[in-house]
Amino acid sequence: MATMSRIEATFAALRQRQETALIPFITAGDPDLKVAAEIILTLVDAGADLIELGVPFSDPMADGPTIQASSERALAAGTTLSGVLQLVAEVRKKTAVPLILMGYYNPVFCYGVERFVRDAVAAGVDGLLLVDLPPEEAAEISPLLHESGVALITLLAPTTPRERMQRLAAVAEGYLYYVSMTGVTGGQKISPEDIRLAVDDLKGMTNVPVGVGFGITTVADACAVGTFADGVVVGSALVKIIEKYGKSEELLPEVAKFVAELKGGLTALTS
């Protein structure tokens, strides 16, 4: 019998508790790699169930102004894909929380696909989400990831045709990331009822957990989506805290406070 991955084991444990996963997103290397390591461990201590780490890229297309600016800060601090993998390796020594890299294909391609997969596995990466690489075009990397036990996370959007949604759901790994709205991260307000209909439909196509992200900025948003999604991704709101406090002494307490409030709200849904 195959061993459960960290992602699978995390969602299985949450399912037993009837609890929604909290999946915070930060940009790796913002404000620098050393502080990012401290932020990750703070997220874990505050209740994060999985963590998405954005790989900074100079030409992002799905990121709103907040996350674009965080990428610019990380790049200015000298963050590279190699540095992100070293960051994962460092924090992996201290936590078993699943770590998912989220970014664009160009840095991976330039790094070397085989070399990247090998190094990602060695570092302790659990999943990979490449915003600009549709599953139909992922033949160069998906078999290597599959053989290595790294989940290739699939993005689905409100504009995804239902037939394609069914095809992607059938081969999904780790969890499906449902984008709650059209546009970029940190955009307009979400409509929980519209998202619920889409997520319920998606859940009828797959047993893989469904996480929802984009536009979830408050505890109220997280709780509204947490009543029907398996996971809630919060990115821009957290990145704004990192931008505001930078390397000050207030940064980690403020991050911890916000994430603990999110986790507390989601946990309260089951009580």
Results as ranks from 00 to 15, higher is better:
M205H: 04
L50G: 10
E90S: 12
E249D: 13
A151D: 15
P60T: 12
E140D: 15
G231E: 11
T95Y: 13
P31H: 09
M1A: 07
V219Q: 10
L145W: 05
V131E: 09
G215W: 08
Q188L: 13
P158W: 09
C110V: 13
V233P: 05
A222I: 09
G64E: 11
L14N: 13
I51Y: 10
M102V: 12
K189C: 01
A169H: 04
Q166A: 15
F116A: 00
A2C: 00
Q18R: 15
G231F: 04
C110W: 13
A260W: 15
V125M: 05
G103N: 03
T10V: 01
L197H: 04
D194T: 07
G186P: 01
T227Y: 00
L128Q: 02
V219K: 08
A120R: 01
V113T: 15
Q18W: 00
G103P: 15
F11H: 05
A37E: 12
G83E: 10
Q18M: 02
V125G: 07
G211V: 03
L155T: 03
L99W: 11
M4C: 02
D200H: 08
L269I: 11
D30H: 14
G64Q: 05
D201Q: 12
S5W: 10
V171P: 13
A76E: 13
V219P: 00
V44F: 14
G226L: 05
K257W: 12
S148W: 01
P253F: 11
T95E: 11
T154P: 09
L144D: 04
T218Y: 09
P192N: 02
T20Q: 07
P98Q: 01
T185K: 08
L176F: 02
P56G: 06
D59N: 15
N207H: 14
T79K: 08
A229S: 03
G54F: 11
F116S: 01
R17A: 14
L252I: 07
L202V: 01
A122N: 07
S180L: 12
D59R: 07
A151S: 14
P134L: 12
I7C: 09
V35S: 00
G235T: 02
P65S: 02
V212M: 09
R92H: 02
L14A: 07
P253Y: 11
E163V: 12
V84G: 03
